[in-house]
Design a protein around this nucleic acid. Structure first.
Length: 822
RNA sequence: GCCGGGGUGGCGGAACGGGUGAGACGCGCCCGCCUUAAAAGCGGGUGUCCCCAUUGGGGGCGUGCGGGUUCGAGUCCCGCCCCCGGCACCA
């Protein structure tokens, strides 16, 4: 049979070539036919079953033209974990859908013609096909796209609940307006004063907007971060974003206007150092100031682009002629209007303490205002010509009347207490987080289900009327008013309350609303009577492993947390936090720069799928490095993985031909196999160290390849195939069959035999004064005394001890090391 | 400025609760085998300096820099330097 076998020739003449395309197509067809990865919802009785559930989810993809390496990474991470957990006996939910609304499709429609829906659905079809081609184990029966009325209908329904609670409301607010896209942007969508999408400089405008009252939840969102198993860096970002500051609110009487204006400060200890007072140009009181100079300054400030205003190095402002009274010492402080004071942080007004705030100091210098130092380091004279802005906590108050000599923190406290007693101040907390402005003056989004009635004002559409369908229109180009305004038949509608003339809301929702609850809909994706059934949602949630990029750590993940928290208060879900554990994947880079469309350095997976197959590509993306750090894309590494798969193919086929069947013999190879089981299970199951799990299987295959016909070869082969299955699910099914089994994707995950994890002999390192001088090979259960005696006898140890007295002897835990100290 | 994460071979990276010669696994490179040749494959080598030597053997130094703790430090502590990221005229 092996007549032409030539020593050294690795390949059996009977062995077929490894053909990834054919093998992958075959198994993908089988999985689809058998609906292998659909997981039914539990029945009522099953809800009580012990079988552990696991909800593994990657962030919802935006359906741009095609998949990129970032997708490849995120979804492969989730796939490996979900396949691993499924084989570990859990009931695993691993669905997929599309974040289908949004500006890019609409802009493409404007640019190239066509309907955003057609463009989007074409992209979705394309991406879905790629996803199947990569072999991700997805429950496609739960697929959703956020642009489908079946989905957004229930989003509108939830909006109505928020509206009833007063959590969705309209207010006039200064908003970031993109003059190019003709729409309002969320703060989060503005980077360095520029529009996230088109890069145009953003303007500030005062407009009526829809908001969600997320600020009511700032503290709750901050507190509950402590309960979440997230990377510290991600929690830190959310904490930064929420931006809690502890301080005081203090009232200043404005002479002449007869108004008490509150300011927020984190430094009440410096109150005696206030030498002037500043209002933001947008502050409501400013409009009441009768001064041509002030009006002129306000006009110029308003005209400045946000970017300019933030980048300004020189402080500008104008004296109002008014004075504010410092409540602590009745000093008259000149009131200025200056645009370095922000209107949307704190109260839009500040007490200025130039001695202890760099910005105030700069302003005081420019306007020749006095600087009075009131806190001083305990053992040094302050430099009166500069601002002293440190606060180590050891400073003492000076020039502060009755509070002189107190440590600054205590002095600050006492000052607030005194003001509080007199009704001029209180301790206060301020947050950076703003309410979530969610209306967009664009077409391709979820319609906001309200109408404006001439008689009744804002009237919500009744639940029975949902969904408010997005109508088709001719022209998507915004012209100062939202594109939906063109759909006159749709806009004009009778008022649900009085039946009179009314107009529909023509703004649409921010797509972050769409992605704030999609993970709930997956649990009950075809429900036509409700957004979801609470029992099902409570069964699957919270998500056990949520995977995605850091770029969504603030906006999406804060909004979704807020949304779920509100649903919890509404009694619609039984949990407060949606994402128990978050795994943040790194970026795939080319060279050292991030792959991104704007940089034009995107390498797509399609080409590599064709050349090397899905299994090699899946292995590659996880072998590049730790998946939670940035990793550099190299073509040589895909080739290396293709080589590994081919090698696996050959070695296993040889084992099938050459190795005896029967029980493993417990030799070195069998022990290696058990060690590998332990390592891979821990790497995937606990450490999320996907790269080292692959390395471990490679080591096993390397050892196996040297002993393909041995008594443990078959066991080692089965183990290697089984362990690499989550990464390379196609080729292993083929090999598994050749090994005489079937349906590896349903096979229980192997368990390491603790008895075989112990090696027959262990190597014990013998050190003299911390330097390794010899090694012993002994039985693992050798008693300590015997071990020490053996080590002491070693000629090499003798040589290094060299007659000196051994003062101490250390035996490391596990008896793997003996150290003699002379 | 505040906050978070990092600095390990030629490269990507291992070393998981201080305990086996740091460098697993892979890439690259070098040598060899196979081949008419190539591809593929297979075997070996690959931190650095030094010493003895014929194959071979032995030793010192090495995880950004400087200290420290410890029998033992890439890992812990103190002080620096550098890189990446978040927030930021945020009062």
């Amino acid at each position: 049979m092996r007549g032409f076998f030539v020593p050294g020739d690795e390949s059996s003449e009977a062995m077929e070539e490894y053909d990834p395309q054919a093998i992958e197509a075959k198994w993908q067809r089988i999985w689809a036919d058998q609906r292998a990865f659909e997981v039914p919802n539990p029945g009522t009785d099953e809800l009580k079953q012990q079988r552990e559930k696991s909800y593994v989810l990657e962030m919802l993809p935006y359906p741009s033209g095609s998949l990129h390496m970032g997708h490849m990474l995120v979804y492969t991470i989730g796939d490996v974990v979900s396949r691993f957990r499924r084989r570990s006996g859990m009931r695993v939910l691993h669905p997929q859908g599309f974040d289908a609304f949004g500006l890019p499709a609409e802009n493409a429609a404007i640019r190239e013609g066509g309907h955003p829906r057609e463009i989007t659905e074409r992209n979705i079809a394309n991406i879905r096909q790629s996803m199947r081609r990569i072999g991700w184990a997805i429950d496609w029966s739960r697929e959703l796209s956020t642009h489908e009325p079946e989905y957004y209908r229930w989003q509108q329904w939830q909006f109505l609940k928020f509206y009833e609670r007063g959590l969705a409301f309209r207010k006039a607010a200064p908003v970031k307006w993109c003059p190019n896209d003709q729409t309002v942007l969320a703060n989060e969508q503005v980077h360095d004063g520029r529009c996230e999408w088109c890069g145009a400089e953003v303007e500030s405008r005062l407009m009526e907007q829809w908001f969600f009252r997320i600020t009511d939840y700032a503290q709750a969102l901050l507190d509950d971060l402590d309960t979440l198993d997230w990377p510290e860096s991600i929690k830190a970002r959310q904490r930064n974003w929420i931006g809690r500051s502890d301080g005081a609110e203090i009232l200043f009487r404005i002479e002449g206007l007869d108004e008490d204006v509150p300011v927020f400060t984190t430094r009440p200890d410096t109150l005696y150092g206030a030498t002037f007072f500043v209002l933001a140009p947008e502050h409501e009181l400013v409009a009441r100031i009768e001064s041509e100079e002030v009006r002129d300054y306000v006009r110029r400030a308003a005209a400045k682009k946000t970017a300019e205003r933030a980048a300004a190095t020189e402080k500008t402002g104008v004296f109002t002629g008014l004075h504010a009274i410092n409540p602590v010492n009745a000093e008259r402080l000149p009131v200025y209007v200056a645009d370095y004071v922000l209107t949307d942080y704190g109260t839009g007004a500040i007490m200025a303490v130039p001695a202890h705030d760099q910005r105030d100091f700069d302003f005081a210098t420019a306007f020749d205002l006095p600087v009075r130092h009131v806190v001083r380091p305990p053992d040094a004279d302050a430099d009166e010509s500069a601002a002293y802005v440190e606060h180590t906590g050891d400073e003492v108050l000076v020039n502060s009347g009755e509070f002189d000599g107190l440590p600054a923190p205590e002095g600050g406290r006492r000052i607030v207490e005194k003001l509080a007693a007199e009704g001029w101040g209180r301790f206060a907390v301020n947050y950076r987080l703003r309410d979530w402005g969610f209306s967009r003056q664009r077409y391709w989004g979820c319609p906001i289900p309200v109408v404006y009635c001439e008689e009744c004002g804002i009237v919500p559409v009744s639940e029975e009327e949902l969904p408010v369908l997005l109508p088709d229109i001719e022209d998507y180009k915004p012209k100062g008013q939202p594109p939906l305004a063109q759909a006159e038949d749709w806009v004009n509608t009778p008022c649900p309350r009085c039946g009179g003339q009314a107009k529909r809301e023509t703004e649409t929702m921010d797509t972050f609303v769409d992605s704030s609850w999609y993970f709930l809909r997956y649990c009950d994706a075809r429900n036509e009577a409700a957004p979801f059934d609470r029992a099902l949602v409570d069964y699957w949630n919270p998500i056990d492993l949520y995977i995605g990029g850091v770029d969504h750590a603030t906006m999406h993940m804060i909004y979704a947390r807020f949304w779920v928290r509100v649903l919890n208060e509404l009694g619609l879900v039984g949990f407060r936090e949606p994402f128990s554990r978050f795994y943040s994947n790194g970026w795939v880079t080319l060279g050292k720069t991030k792959m991104s469309k704007s940089k034009g350095n995107v390498v797509g997976p399609d080409d590599f799928l064709e050349r090397y197959g899905a299994d090699a590509c899946r292995l590659n993306i996880l072998f590049l490095g730790p998946a939670n750090e940035d990793m550099e894309w190299t073509e040589t590494s895909v080739e290396a993985m293709a080589r590994f798969v081919r090698r696996l193919w050959r070695v296993i086929n040889d084992v099938v031909d050459q190795a005896p069947s029967g029980e493993p013999g417990g030799g070195v190879l069998a022990r290696k196999a058990h060690a590998t089981i332990a390592k891979v299970s821990d790497d995937i199951g606990r450490r999320y160290a996907f790269n080292t799990a692959i390395a471990a299987v490679m080591e096993l295959v390397n050892e196996l390849s040297r002993d393909r016909a041995g008594r443990d070869a078959r066991f080692a082969a089965e183990t290697a195939v089984s362990l690499i299955q989550p990464y390379a699910p196609h080729v292993v099914e083929e090999l598994w069959e050749r090994l005489g089994h079937e349906r590896l994707w349903e096979e229980s995950w192997p368990k390491a035999d603790p008895a075989l994890l112990e090696l027959e002999t262990i190597e014990v390192v013998v050190q003299v004064n911390g330097r390794i001088r010899d090694r012993l090979h002994v039985a693992p259960n050798t008693p300590e005394e015997e071990l020490v005696a053996l080590a002491r006898e070693s000629s090499r140890v003798q040589a290094y001890v060299d007659g000196a007295e051994v003062v101490r002897t250390f035996v490391a835990p596990g008896k793997k090391l003996v150290n003699f100290v002379t």
